[in-house]
Simulated assay, not measured.
Amino acid sequence: MTGAGVPAGGPAGAWHPGGYLRFAGERARPFAELLARVGAEAPRTVVDLGCGEGSLTVSLAQRWPGARVTGVDSSREMLAAAGAAAHGRVEFRLGDVRDWMPPGPVDVVVSNAALHWVPGHPELMARWAAALPPGGWLAVQVPGNFRAPTHALLAELCRSPEWADRTADVAPRADTVLEPAGYAEVLTAAGLVPDVWETTYLHVLRGPDPVLAWVRSTVLRPVLARLDDEAAAAFTDAYAAALRAAYPPRPDGTTLLPFRRVFAVGTRPS
């Protein structure tokens, strides 16, 4: 999913569906595991907030054949790719998740790998939860790796003397997302029954600078949006060197990337 509500900021910062889908399998697995804990049997209305290029949104219609499914995203590039997946029961809309409120009863609200782009998103979750009808479900997944080397090294570089004047304010923050207990409190306070957990995936990546390739389409994107082509190349080279030291290739040429994710599912009792 994409950073719903985050301006693209120019070509370097635009969402590129091809780059994002390079790791489609790895990114789809948390979505499947999130939805496996949603017990809705026959919802009529399902909304996917921060739907990205739409392939996972379409899977919601396949799971619930009687539901009307809507995907919302702020990226025109991603929605252009999603348009090919739309059919009678699935539609995609351009919009900012910060502004979204259900126009009527929504039985299932899903947001996968999008809310970490939104400051203050726990309040947003509480607002969505408050609008759920009895028996409604809210399911959210966010990356929980903001203290991992991928993000810590990027933040350090963004705040270094050479780059701080251009990139310090877009450096990833360690407190971008809550710990699992924090999301459990958000759901409970909104009157939902919480089901919250975390998982660390160990991705086996291949190719040259594979960790850089992973982050280029996500956390690195808003940083490069602040730089011209020459500066972006210099910044990327420095970041790539740091990543190679933190995530060295194994003897077989693969690279291991531990990636933590936090899941929060809540339902309003019938």
Rank of each mutant, 00 (worst) to 15 (best):
Trp100Lys: 09
Phe146Ile: 08
Phe92Tyr: 13
Leu124Asn: 09
Gly136Trp: 00
Val170Lys: 06
Pro133Leu: 06
His151Cys: 04
Val97Glu: 03
Pro161Ser: 12
Pro102His: 08
Phe146Ala: 14
Ala164Asn: 01
Gly104Arg: 15
Met125Asn: 05
Pro119Trp: 03
Arg173Met: 06
Ala152Met: 08
Leu132Ala: 04
Gly135Leu: 11
Cys158Gln: 00
Glu91Met: 12
Val109Cys: 12
Ala113Lys: 10
Gly95Ile: 13
Arg89Tyr: 08
Pro122Phe: 02
Pro134Ser: 15
Asp99Tyr: 05
Val90Ser: 13
Val118Glu: 11
Ala126Pro: 06
Thr167Val: 14
Arg173Lys: 09
Leu157Arg: 01
Pro172Trp: 14
His116Glu: 12
Val110Gly: 01
Asp107Lys: 03
Pro161Arg: 08
Asp169Val: 07
Trp117Tyr: 11
Trp137Asn: 03
Gln141Lys: 07
Asp169Phe: 08
Ala148Ile: 05
Gly95Ala: 11
Phe146Glu: 06
Asp175Gly: 04
Pro122Glu: 05
Val170Gln: 13
Glu123Ala: 15
Phe146Leu: 10
Arg89Leu: 05
Ala164Gly: 00
Pro172Leu: 15
Ala114Phe: 04
Gly104His: 15
Pro119Thr: 11
Ala168Ser: 14
Cys158Leu: 01
Ala114Glu: 02
Gly135Asn: 07
His151Glu: 07
Val170Ser: 10
Gly88Phe: 08
Ala113Gly: 12
Glu91Tyr: 06
